[in-house]
């Protein structure tokens, strides 16, 4: 089924076309969400929200961009909203813990113990922490480039930015990751 057939089918409420769309793009959408939220169940839930939005708002797709570009945009926006909501929840939770006299559960990079062998899980956690500390646009550009292997041109289309802006975002993201990892290396956190 071609892209236009898929869209026409979905716009008329054809569930077979919708199934074909999900089969074709589910890996891409789940992986994009996963790159931003770093949690598989959350990424799958968000990917489902993306497909539901596509099905319900298919009339809004005018065809001036590729279908994948539209899906990437929805996936990125949904994932960023999810992170923002989680940040708000964490803020209130930490406030509650402070008033209750409890210890803040959030882990800083320097909290890693040095007397234990570092497991892969801890390394993963460190990677996610350094990526999460990037500003939103840098994080999105870096994630699309590294998790989805998209070219700078494709990222520029998705983020509706110039090619030079995307190059600059990814360059700054890499520098920032390097600085954060160096801080961690100096403190012998892993």
């Amino acid at each position: 089924m071609s892209e236009s057939e898929l869209i026409n089918g979905i716009q008329t409420g054809d569930k077979r076309a919708f199934r074909a769309l999900v089969d074709n793009y589910q890996r891409m959408v789940v992986n994009t969400c996963f790159g931003i939220v770093h949690n598989q169940p959350d990424a799958e839930d968000l990917a489902q929200d993306v497909f539901l939005e596509v099905f319900r708002n298919s009339a809004q797709f005018r065809g001036d961009a590729k279908l994948s570009t539209w899906l990437y945009r929805i996936a990125v926006n949904r994932s960023l909203n999810h992170i923002r909501n989680n940040s708000r929840k964490k803020f209130w939770q930490s406030l509650e813990e402070t008033f209750k006299g409890g210890r803040n559960a959030s882990k800083e990079i320097s909290d890693y113990r040095t007397d234990q062998a570092i497991t892969e899980e801890q390394r993963r956690e460190l990677l996610h922490q350094v990526i999460d500390k990037l500003p939103e646009k840098q994080r999105v550009a870096f994630t699309l480039n590294k998790y989805e292997d998209l070219s700078y041109q494709q990222i520029a289309e998705i983020m509706e930015l110039s090619l030079a802006s995307v190059e600059s975002l990814i360059h700054r993201a890499k520098k920032s990751l390097q600085d954060q990892l160096y801080e961690c290396y100096k403190k012998k956190c892993i």
Binding site: F34, G35, A43, A47, R123, K146
Partner: peptide
């Protein structure tokens, strides 16, 4: 740093649940 960045290649493209479409 190389070990850290290689983790991205290891964790990307996670296996999607076989019940993804059923739930959707």
């Amino acid at each position: 740093m190389e070990r850290q960045l290689q983790l991205i290649d290891q964790e990307k493209n996670p296996e999607v649940s076989p019940f993804f479409y059923t739930r959707l």
